Amino acid sequence: MLALTSPALAVDVPSGQPVELQEVLVDNLGTETWLRFRFIAPRIAREWGEIGFADAEPDMVHLCETLALPYIAEYGLKGEVIVISLADRATEFGVADPDATQFFEAYRPVDNTCIWEGL
């Protein structure tokens, strides 16, 4: 797995919640390359959060189309699947954190748009 680090980047999303890019990971799974865009979204916290999955879902599509696709083009990345994840706090990829709230969606990049995979 390759981690592409970048300084924290705040992003505007439809729900209006604050969202910050934590990291981008390139992950080879079998014959496919998955590009994982991991965001911190504190307002999804399960104990006191104001944003549920239904409100965050349009945010994830928006992040895929307005941030992930241009990022992929800018850095010349290739991948069959884009995963957008939101977490209420910074987490380490692949390490269980039972206190963290996390939402995930997967998309196929097709003709400069993100097609929901429904994994």
Rank of each mutant, 00 (worst) to 15 (best):
I72W: 03
I115R: 10
A100L: 05
T33Y: 11
F104Y: 14
G79L: 06
I51C: 04
E117F: 08
T101A: 04
A8N: 14
P70R: 08
F93G: 07
Y71M: 11
L67I: 11
A106V: 04
A96P: 07
I82A: 03
I40V: 15
L25W: 09
Q17H: 03
I40S: 02
L2H: 08
L29P: 02
G49L: 03
S15Q: 01
A54I: 13
F37P: 07
S6H: 14
W48M: 11
E47P: 01
M1N: 10
S15R: 06
L9F: 05
A8T: 15
E47S: 14
V61G: 00
C114T: 12
A41C: 15
T91Q: 13
S85A: 08
T5N: 09
I51N: 01
T31R: 10
L25D: 02
G118A: 06
V83Q: 15
T113A: 11
A106I: 04
L86G: 04
G49Y: 06
E23S: 11
R43S: 08
G79E: 03
I115Y: 01
V19H: 03
M1I: 09
I115V: 14
S85H: 11
Y71K: 12
E74F: 02
R108G: 01
E117L: 14
L69C: 13
G76Y: 04
R43K: 11
T91E: 13
G76V: 03
V11N: 04
A8M: 08
V24P: 01
P70Q: 05
G118P: 00
R46L: 11
G49S: 04
L9Y: 08
A56N: 03
A45W: 02
M1Y: 02
L2C: 01
W48P: 02
A41W: 12
G30D: 15
L4I: 15
K78M: 05
C64A: 15
Y71G: 08
V110H: 09
V61C: 00
L9S: 01
V24H: 06
L25S: 10
R36F: 00
F53Y: 15
P42H: 12
L63C: 08
E20R: 11
S15P: 07
T5H: 06
R36T: 05
Q102A: 12
L67K: 06
C64P: 09
Q17A: 14
E47L: 12
N28R: 13
Y107M: 02
L21P: 05
L9N: 01
L35Y: 07
